[in-house]
């Protein structure tokens, strides 16, 4: 168990591509940090630098109180779970799980004990003699987890470990991994492009965009107080509504008239509001036109236009709505304002 510190870590691939711009953050002992961002933003590169599978171009990395820039992956006291499981196809489940221990000169009896324990924890006990090809996707994922858990490392690294599973299994494994991490208390870095995984699993989320950190924060902070329009539209399904508005006389106005919130300054602004922070009702002040009602069972999404711009509203299943003109009101507390040019929160 350990604290992890990245100090001005940068990655430039040999072909000149700067996949990770110099960035710094640290992870507390036992913390579960999720790196999230769109495909190609540099998540894997960053994780692989921590693992030692990729050279660090610049900056320093420490795990515990040890600088590990030039330490072999096997000596970093880490365990990694790969997207495609990366099990050894020729080894049984038992050997797969025990291989890392065997190479660390741990007595066979102790290895066996630990493998049994990990297998029990992951419901793999009756599959120990099987080869990976004789297992289902979920079971392979568990073996990969077992291989990491059995080592009792200082740091777990996960690179999109659930993206090869079907939705139901993904949901189940998400909970299992989180519970396991809680129980073992091992510091973890988890990479995903799935914002739901990020929201549900993380103690802290780091949102990456083209090699840069957009925001670091708890899931609630990231969700409710996005630091940029990028974070606002990347996190949440449906994403935050972003409306071009004006600040006039201390008020944010949409379409030249309706004031929705107070603000300082003057001129154009991008207003962000989560779909669930909007109410509908005859007494509300803003006119809105519903184009499509999306029925989702537990709730409904109303897609339409606000001042000619795309806008989505989330309503509970008990509220009725049909396509056509209605009136809405926006919760001023929930409004986030962004600089229209830079996209950065004001």
């Amino acid at each position: 168990m350990a604290q992890v510190t990245l100090n001005n870590i940068r990655k430039v691939y040999p072909n000149g591509n700067e996949a990770v711009e110099p960035l710094s953050f640290s992870i507390a002992d036992g913390e579960f940090v999720v790196l999230v961002g769109p495909s190609g933003c540099g998540k894997s590169t960053l994780l692989r630098m921590v693992a030692g599978l990729e050279d660090i171009s610049e900056g320093t990395l420490s795990i515990g109180d040890r600088n590990v820039n030039h330490v072999d992956p096997a000596e970093r006291d880490i365990a990694m779970v790969f997207q495609n499981y990366a099990l050894y196809p020729h080894m049984t489940v038992r050997k797969n799980i025990g291989y890392g221990l065997k190479n660390r000169k741990i007595p066979a009896s102790e290895i066996e004990e630990k493998v049994q324990e990990a297998a029990k924890m992951l419901d793999l006990s009756q599959y120990l003699e099987r080869k990976p090809s004789q297992l289902s996707g979920g079971q392979r994922q568990r073996v990969a987890m077992g291989r990491a858990v059995v080592r009792d490392p200082a740091l777990f690294l996960f690179d999109e470990p659930l993206s090869n599973l079907d939705a139901k299994l993904r949901h189940q494994m998400r909970i299992e991994i989180k519970a396991l991490q809680r129980r073992l208390g091992v510091t973890s870095i988890y990479v995903t492009h799935d914002q739901v995984e990020a929201m549900t699993m993380a103690d802290r989320i780091i949102v990456l965009n083209s090699g840069r950190i957009e925001q670091i924060g708890t899931p609630a902070e990231i969700y409710h107080r996005p630091a940029s329009t990028f974070v606002a539209s990347f996190m949440g399904a449906p994403p935050m509504n972003l409306i071009e508005a004006q600040i006039k006389d201390g008020r944010v106005v949409i379409g030249g008239e309706t004031p929705v919130a107070s603000a300082s300054g003057q001129g154009p602004v991008t207003m962000g509001i989560r779909p669930e922070d909007v109410e509908i009702g005859p007494t509300c002040d803003i006119p809105f036109t519903i184009d499509i009602v999306e029925e989702l069972g537990a709730h409904r999404l109303l897609h339409g236009k606000l001042d000619g711009q795309d806008f989505t509203i989330h309503i509970s299943k008990d509220t009725e709505a049909v396509a056509g003109p209605i009136r809405i009101s926006i919760n001023p507390e929930a409004v986030v304002l962004f600089d229209t040019k830079t996209g950065i929160a004001l």
Binding site: D72, A74, I78, A86, G100, N103
Partner: peptide, 17 residues
């Protein structure tokens, strides 16, 4: 698979092994 070798890289420090 590249990832299988990388898993081995994390599991074992000796290239020969």
């Amino acid at each position: 698979p590249k990832s299988v070798r990388e898993a081995a890289l994390i599991d074992c420090s000796s290239a020969m092994r």
